[in-house]
Structure formats: C-alpha cells, structure tokens
C-alpha cells in the first residue's frame, strides 16, 4: 500500500477582491514506501502549493477546495490541528525551498536541531537530544563536533545538509525536498543528491523531490509527475517519461533541457509564458503554447481528462491515445 496518496487535490488562492484563483486542480499521485517521486514543472505551476497543501501549511489565502490526502490510509485533511501536528515532521517531513538560508544566524546548528527535537517531543532530556543531534549530523555527513558552529561558518552545501538533518529529526517516513539543490554548484548538487539517495536507501524513506530540473529527477527518482498550470500533465515511471513521453509539454521540456553528452543537439524552447492564475485558458492549460501538429479545436475548448495510456502511464492531452 502507498504510504502517501493524494487524490484529486484542488487548491484555490483568494485574490483580495474575493475571486478564487485556481492554483491547483485535481492533482493526484501516490508514493510507495522506499520509492522516490519527482514533481517537475516551471515556477508557478503549483508544485510547491501541492506540498504545502498536503502538509496543511498553506498561507492564509490558500484554500483546499477538494481532495483527499491519505497518509497510511487515513485522510489527514480530516484531522484536527493537533492530530496533524503528529503527522507533520513525524510522518511527513519537508525541506523547504531556501530553508538553508533561513537558519537562525545567532544560534549554533546543534542547538537548532535540539530545539526541533524538543518541540516535537522526540526526546525529553537535553543530553539525549544533543546526542541525537550529533547522530543526525553524522548521518548527513557533517562531523558532529561542527554542530557547535554557527550557520555562517558553514558553506552552502553544509547548511543544506544541516537542514536535511533537521527534517529527519523525527524519523519521518516521507521526506519532501523542495528544490533542494537550486543555487548550489554542480559538485555540491551532486553531493546533496548522493546524500538524499543514500538516506532514502538507509532509512527506507519515501522521497518526494520537487524541482524544475529534469536532470536531477532523471538521476534520482523512480516515478515522475509533470505539472503544468496547476494540473497534472503526465505521470509515469522515470524511464517512460524520459524515453517515451506522450504529453507535448513533457516532450518540449525534455527538448529544452541541455544534455552534456550531446552538446551539438539543438535546444528547443517553449515560447510564451505559463498561464496566469487569473487568466486560465478555458481548455487545455497548455494549449496557448502548444505546437503539437495534432492539436485541434477541442484543445482550446475543453480541458483534457487524465487518461491511463498503459499501466502506470497517465497523460492529460486530447491527442494522445491509449495503447492497445
């Protein structure tokens, strides 16, 4: 059974004149124990919103309109806030985008981890908490004695490791990493990816990686969910997404990604901009930018349903067909 399953999740943001903006519509996916899922899309496509919604950490103006978030078969959207607190960090934990720059600059890294442990009642005693903090630092590849240092004495890569250590404080079963390597150099990116892969294997974590970087997903994830304009465009195993993608958006995205092994190949760009939330197209949300030769009048009129093309491979496009 899936550890985490999201069904038909829709989230609105409310503009100050009261108009609801449909930021996320009908998104669903599931993650098995010990598997990894990559959620890919451009900025503004709603990928972070989905994560915030399933942790129920949406900003004030966000509303979960419909859907279910099943953690171990239980819908956490029905939970009370105190029940939810048991799920957050213990069940599902998240490394927020830019969290490495949000560490408290005037406290040691260790004391910040200790604080996280105590807030979540993992360990009562301060000594035990400090021991555990040391273990966590070791786990993410930081020598425990460096826990006494302050964040500014850390490099970017080490700060990101420390943030990951904090997210692991309560032994979560699902770890969400939101753009964990943006703004880091390639070599440090590789180090962080390796760390996440190792942690996933060692701790049997289910990993959700939210990113706009297809290469990262190809390197680390078992399954991929491609989002566009707040909706699922395509989802399948990595192998399928990267080798036989069906949705025109996925195909364009792949063509736009430079491949160091094929430096001579052309890069296709995707002209235009992602749809604005207050001006969503009536039909398929990708239609205004779609250059697929098979697109027809229906694309501009009705939103395509998400259909299963072959087992485990779903796409939302009028011009894709089921296999067999």
């Amino acid at each position: 059974m899936a550890v985490l399953e999201v069904r038909n999740l829709s989230v609105d943001y409310v503009a100050d004149d009261g108009t609801p903006l449909h930021a996320v519509a009908d998104v669903g996916f599931s993650v098995e124990q010990g598997r990894s899922l990559g959620i890919v899309g451009e900025s503004g496509c709603g990928k972070t919103t989905v994560m915030m919604a399933l942790l129920r950490l949406l900003p004030e103006e966000g509303r979960i309109v419909s859907g279910q978030v099943l953690f171990d078969g239980q819908d956490v959207l029905q939970y009370s806030e105190s029940q939810m607190r048991q799920v957050r960090w213990r069940g599902i934990s998240m490394v927020f985008q830019g969290a490495m720059n949000a560490l408290n600059p005037v406290r040691t890294v260790e004391s910040q981890i200790v604080e996280a442990l105590q807030i979540h009642d993992v360990v009562e005693q301060r000594r035990a908490a400090r021991e555990r903090a040391g273990e966590l630092l070791q786990l993410v590849g930081i020598p425990p004695q460096r826990g006494r240092q302050y964040p500014h004495q850390y490099s970017g890569g080490m700060r990101q490791r420390a943030v990951i250590a904090m997210a692991l404080a309560c032994n979560p079963r699902v770890l969400i990493a939101d753009e964990p390597t943006t703004a880091l150099d390639v070599m440090i990116q590789a180090q962080i990816l390796e760390l996440l892969e190792r942690l996933q294997a060692e701790l049997e974590l289910s990993l959700i990686m939210v990113t706009h970087d297809l290469g990262m997903v190809a390197e680390t994830c078992d399954d991929v969910l491609v989002m566009y304009g707040g909706m699922v465009a395509e989802k399948a195993s990595s192998d399928v997404i990267f080798n036989t993608p069906q949705h025109p958006y996925t195909r364009r995205l792949l063509e736009a990604f430079p491949d160091v092994e094929e430096p001579d190949s052309d890069l296709a760009s995707i002209p235009g901009n992602p749809p604005r939330l207050d001006d969503l197209p009536a039909g398929c949300r990708f239609e205004p930018r779609c250059e697929c030769p098979e697109r027809g009048a229906i694309c501009a009129q009705t939103a395509p349903p998400l259909v299963e093309l072959e087992p485990g491979h779903w796409a939302a496009c009028h011009s894709v067909r089921r296999v067999g």
Partner: peptide
C-alpha cells in the same frame, strides 16, 4: 565536473 552533470535520461545514469 562532467560526471556529475545530471543527464536527462535514467537509462544513461
């Protein structure tokens, strides 16, 4: 450096 550049295809990890 080249070896750590992500390649957009899991078959070529």
């Amino acid at each position: 450096l080249i070896s750590v550049v992500p390649v957009p295809n899991p078959r070529r990890r």
